[in-house]
């Protein structure tokens, strides 16, 4: 889908939900599916289209973790901070990733390659501590293992 088609789809989405009460959530979800995130211009179109304020749209978008305000990187790194992983030292893995990539948790690298996220339990406690990169699972991690794993994607 090119940019023009994306915006046309957004307009259609707004039209479909416009008259419904509580239209904001499904429209934001739909917009995120179209654009991969809900950036400022998209939020303004939603606000004007639904007749709500930008404050309200932004408030909802920042309340729910599922919405991303900025485009996510090519590779989404999700580090599990569930109880088992945390006890096994996943915070240190997360800190190492943050240090290596020079981004805070929730941030995206300037080249758009990586986004770093902390998540709740991934359900792979047996492999703790665990992270996924675009769905691929890495288990029994140590901070020292981080540079090697990243290198695979950096050259990719």
């Amino acid at each position: 889908m090119n940019e023009k088609e994306k915006y046309a789809e957004l307009e259609q989405l707004i039209q479909n939900h416009k008259s419904q009460p509580g239209a904001l959530m499904p429209v934001l979800q739909g917009a995120q599916a179209i654009f991969g995130c809900v950036p400022e211009d998209v939020q303004k179109i939603i606000a004007d289209g639904l007749g709500v304020t930008l404050s309200e749209v932004y408030g909802v978008a920042t309340f729910y973790a599922q919405f991303s305000l900025r485009p996510k990187g090519e590779y989404l790194i999700s580090v599990c901070l569930g109880t088992a992983c945390y006890v096994k030292g996943s915070q240190k893995v997360l800190d190492k990733l943050s240090e290596e990539l020079h981004i805070p948790v929730g941030g995206t690298t300037d080249d758009g390659k990586f986004t770093l996220e902390a998540t709740r339990c991934l359900g792979a406690c047996g492999l703790a501590p665990v992270m996924t990169i675009n769905g691929e699972v890495y288990g029994r991690l140590t901070p020292d293992a981080v540079p090697g794993i990243l290198a695979k994607y950096q050259t990719a």
Binding site: E40, Q43, S55, V57, G59, Y64
Partner: peptide, 20 residues
């Protein structure tokens, strides 16, 4: 009918702000 401020973020980080 102006609505230029609202709650943003969540939990401990909640603040009354203008968007963006």
């Amino acid at each position: 009918n102006v609505g230029v401020i609202g709650p943003v973020n969540r939990g401990f980080k909640t603040a009354i702000e203008s968007p963006w």
